[in-house]
Design a binder for these strands. Structure first.
Length: 857
RNA sequence: GCUUGAGUGGUGAAAUUGGCAAACACGCCAGACUUAGGAUCUGGUGCCGCGAGGUUUAAGGGUUCGAGUCCCUUCUCAAGCACCA
């Protein structure tokens, strides 16, 4: 390349980006002899809008760390991929008729090009894409493992349905009664859906959190989301014979029960409402049903309810307890019924007051017993033989009593629900499942060596329609990947719910040979060993592919398994995971679930995927609001790169503020970092395009400059380790200001500075490095070593305070004794003025820093 | 409402265990070099005051020789949760 005199970032940046690609600078190879460092970014959804400034913030941060670790001698793995299934590509397909794969490929190409333009040191040979059949082959395979082990099932319970998106959503995807994507209203609807039994991992997911180096807020959020609560299940017999169960965390308050409240959706209501209450109850249920869930859970409104006319019998006292229906009881939590203890639960108290139900205090405390008394640090009163026990003791005693009466047991309840795992979309992984009639399933069960037994669960997964029961047959490894069929439309047809039902009949209806494992389109013929079935037409949610993508980076081309044993043995799990906090109870929970599960199968060496997690803050629009199209405050990073270059963009984003802070985009500051880079260039390259004469090989730097260099090495190193890139850049600027003031600087120091700069502004660093005569990439050179001896000062500055106020400063030799320093401090002219007419009552000396005289007038 | 964070110049922000508040940068002011400056360099820039000096980390109180940092109260903002029995 021509050695220009100007800082021509365009030429430089293109040149070094090509160099890294050709030299495979960032290609990582499994090498058990070297220490590894694996940095993981949350992979992006390749949207049509291209890379935005938030992506660049996180990816630059990890790139800086990766380049730094590489210079430190680590075998660094910094891969990238695409979370490419999802709604926008599908909507684009609906609008244009173009297959989503085409749109996805264009977007991916654009994202990759932009990432290269930012200068990210990515190992592109490990690029993965969740929509690649060779990738989702293993997503489907892991699903089948879950299926085989009884962790995937179908259910008809009411689920969140979003009419606008035309699909069901998981609990975690519903925020304040609206869809996470698009903020559309959702409603409850009963549909047959696939569900993953994440609750089976509730305890493991909770316990596993303890040892993770994650932001506290994120751990707390997951903990609350899992919402483990211990308590008891209490059975109340009804007067007329049936029984109902309630879950309670407070068995100690059992003797204070004065009513029972059922959720309006509770199935028992159909048969227990007495005749004279029939109309009131049904009117009430209709009224509640017309409200959205949001309205129902709105705290601003009071509680309401209606008496059913029926009574339950208290399991211990045999008292008659009225049964009510009340909207504050939620069907989807616990048993959908609660025991009302007004004296010790604020909601029950409010309800009892409103309907004049008895309030029986059964717990009292010495210092405060105003009702409702909801704390658990009291003792029991009015509770027969349990009176006098502490709450804790009573919880156990009452549960034991209930158990012996056969109407109670201890129980752990989770707020976490099983994970709704199917979507009514086209652009997702098809389920490798075929539904067959129960009678045909029996044939399969009878065939002991059927290939279809590979993923067959112990208990059949089935659903009924009319008089027929259908059972789920898992495809075998041989059938994977099950690719998406061509469809006539990406929208569900009238009367159907899924787009895949638009596929050819030859895809939808198939025949299986239970002996050979063969699978072919249905042709209406029957012969021995063949059974007929229908494909599952739901697809998996976008979270599926992101549940295990990080593992695929380790063996992206491996055919025999989702990851190669030797690769995962070497790389383990990421040393650092960087990505947005918005996935706290979505991706970060789901991926932990899958990883824990795969660990339990013995397929992974560790149970937790992400030991260390960091959330970069959101970059806000210039107006301080979240960037959004509707506010028109979305900024385009390309414009900055056009005008100032990628190195400036990187420095700018890192210099905006602490990485974890939300901070507004403030383009004025880009000038500062651009000037800094121009200054670096000018100091190294003279007007003829040659190395500046100021940089001299073999020159001995002044001690002060050497000290500045080593302070800079120390501060930059520490700042990178702690991801405090803004302060690292400030220190680089301080160094450069000092550099500028020197008449001559050693070649050695000039090189060391470039090495410190290289992770942040890699293009200019590489360019100057090579102009200084180096042949290899700057990142191959080992990171400068900090020498504390260079920073030892012979003279110390001691601040002199009087009564805590700074009055003067003195300079002393580093080896001066304490008493001599105190004496010198007293002599300091400005300080002496304040000491003259007073008596010193105390002298404080902080070694090497300050002296404080406490005086009295 | 509950939980958890945070609040420092005109702006983005710095500040090891409590030890010189405002580093670095933007902006602004003045100057130098220039035909020119959106290039570059030099100096200044928290607030009050001509000055000596005083004063300042949301507000108030406390602990301490000493508090941006620790404790208490209040206010504001952000995030999360929101009838979870």
């Amino acid at each position: 390349m021509a050695k220009t005199a100007e800082y021509n970032f365009k030429t430089i940046e293109t040149h070094w980006q090509n160099y890294w690609e050709e030299a495979k600078t960032f290609h990582a190879v499994t090498d058990s002899k070297r220490a590894k460092y694996w940095i993981l970014d949350m992979f992006p959804y390749p949207s049509g809008a291209g890379l935005h400034v938030g992506h660049i913030e996180g990816y630059t941060a990890t790139d800086i760390l990766g380049r730094y670790k590489k210079a430190q001698g680590f075998n660094v793995l910094h891969p990238m991929g695409w979370d490419a299934f999802g709604l926008p590509a599908e909507q684009h397909a609906i609008a244009t008729g173009l297959h989503p794969a085409i749109n996805t490929k264009n977007n991916v190409d654009n994202f990759r090009r932009q990432m290269k333009r930012v200068g990210l040191g990515i190992d592109w040979e490990r690029e993965i894409n969740t929509t690649d059949p060779e990738y989702f082959r293993w997503t489907q395979w892991i699903f089948l493992q879950l299926f085989k082990h009884g962790l995937a099932y179908v259910d008809q319970k009411p689920v969140w349905w979003c009419p606008k998106l035309g699909t069901v959503l998981a609990n975690e995807e519903v925020i304040d009664g609206k869809s996470e994507r698009g903020h559309y209203p959702v409603e409850r609807k009963a549909l047959r859906q696939w569900v993953l039994k994440i609750t089976a991992y509730g305890d493991k997911l909770l316990k596993g959190l303890e040892h993770l180096d994650w932001p506290d807020a994120t751990k707390r959020q997951q903990k609350l989301w899992i919402g483990r609560s211990e308590g008891g299940l209490v059975k109340f017999n009804l007067e007329q014979g049936q029984s109902l169960e309630v879950f309670t965390t407070r068995p100690d308050t059992l003797l204070g029960v004065s009513f029972i409240a059922l959720a309006p959706e509770h199935p028992l209501l159909k048969c227990i409402v007495t005749e004279d209450q029939q109309k009131a109850v049904s009117d009430y249920i209709t009224q509640v049903a017309s409200k959205s869930d949001l309205e129902r859970t709105d705290l601003a409104k009071g509680k309401s309810g209606v008496f059913t006319g029926s009574y339950a019998l208290h399991p211990i006292t045999q008292e008659r307890i009225p049964i009510w229906v009340a909207d504050y009881v939620l069907m989807y939590h616990g048993t959908g019924a609660v025991m009302g203890v007004p004296a010790h639960d604020s909601r029950d108290y409010e309800f009892a007051q409103m309907y004049h139900l008895p309030i029986k205090q059964v717990i009292a405390s010495n210092d405060d017993s105003t009702l409702p008394f909801c704390k658990t640090d009291g003792t029991l009163v009015n509770s027969q033989k349990f009176t006098g026990l502490t709450c804790e003791a009573a919880n156990k005693a009452i549960l034991t009593e209930l158990e012996s009466l056969g109407c109670g047991k201890t129980m752990v309840q989770y707020k976490l629900h099983d994970w709704l795992f199917s979507r009514q979309r086209y652009w997702g992984e098809p389920f490798p499942i075929v539904w067959v009639k129960k009678s045909d399933y029996a044939k399969l069960l009878a065939c002991k060596d059927s290939p279809f037994r590979e993923f067959l669960p112990e208990e059949a997964i089935s659903y009924s329609e009319g008089n027929e029961t259908f059972c789920a047959v898992p495809l075998t490894s041989q059938h994977l990947p099950l690719e998406l069929p061509k469809v006539s439309s990406y929208k569900p047809a009238e009367g159907s719910t899924t787009p895949l039902q638009n596929a050819e009949k030859t895809w939808l209806n198939v025949r299986l040979n239970i002996h050979t494992g063969e699978l072919c389109p249905e042709d209406g013929t029957t012969s021995e060993g063949w059974i007929s079935g229908m494909r599952e037409t739901n697809t998996m949610p976008q979270w599926a592919g992101s549940c295990w993508y990080y593992l695929r980076y380790l063996s992206p081309h491996y055919k025999q398994n989702f990851v190669a044993k030797e690769d995962v043995a070497y790389w383990g799990t990421p040393d650092l995971y960087v990505g947005g906090a918005e996935h706290a109870v979505l991706h970060l929970l789901y991926a932990r679930f899958w990883h824990n599960f795969l660990f339990d199968l013995g397929l992974l060496p560790t149970n937790e995927p992400f030991r260390k997690l960091f959330h970069p803050g959101i970059i806000l629009g210039p107006d301080g609001n979240k960037m959004s199209k509707s506010l028109g405050n979305v900024v385009n990073p390309n414009e900055v790169m056009d005008e100032y270059g990628a190195d400036s963009l990187r420095l700018y984003e890192m210099f905006l503020g602490p990485l974890e802070a939300s901070k507004p985009w403030n383009l004025q500051n880009v000038e500062g970092v651009f000037r800094f880079l121009k200054k670096v260039w000018r100091e190294y390259i003279n007007l003829d395009g040659e190395i500046s004469a100021k940089i001299q090989a073999g020159f001995h730097d002044t001690p002060a400059f050497e000290q500045l260099l080593h302070e800079t090495i120390s501060k930059v190193t520490e700042a990178i380790e702690n991801l405090r890139f803004n302060t690292a850049i400030a220190q680089l600027m301080i160094f450069m200001n000092g550099f500028q003031k020197e008449a001559t600087v050693s070649l050695d120091s000039a090189k060391k500075f470039l090495q410190l700069l290289a992770p942040f502004a890699p293009h200019i660093a590489e360019e100057l490095w090579s102009r200084l005569g180096e042949n290899a990439s700057i990142i191959e050179a080992s990171w400068p070593k900090f020498d504390p001896n260079k920073c030892v000062r012979s003279e110390l500055k001691i601040v002199v305070q009087v009564n805590g106020k700074v009055r003067d400063e003195i300079y002393v030799n580093a080896d001066t004794e304490k008493n001599a320093i105190l004496e010198a401090a007293k002599q300091a002219p400005k300080a002496a003025r304040y000491l003259q007419s007073s008596t010193i009552v105390k002298e404080i000396y902080v070694p090497g820093k300050l002296v404080n005289f406490v005086v009295k007038p």
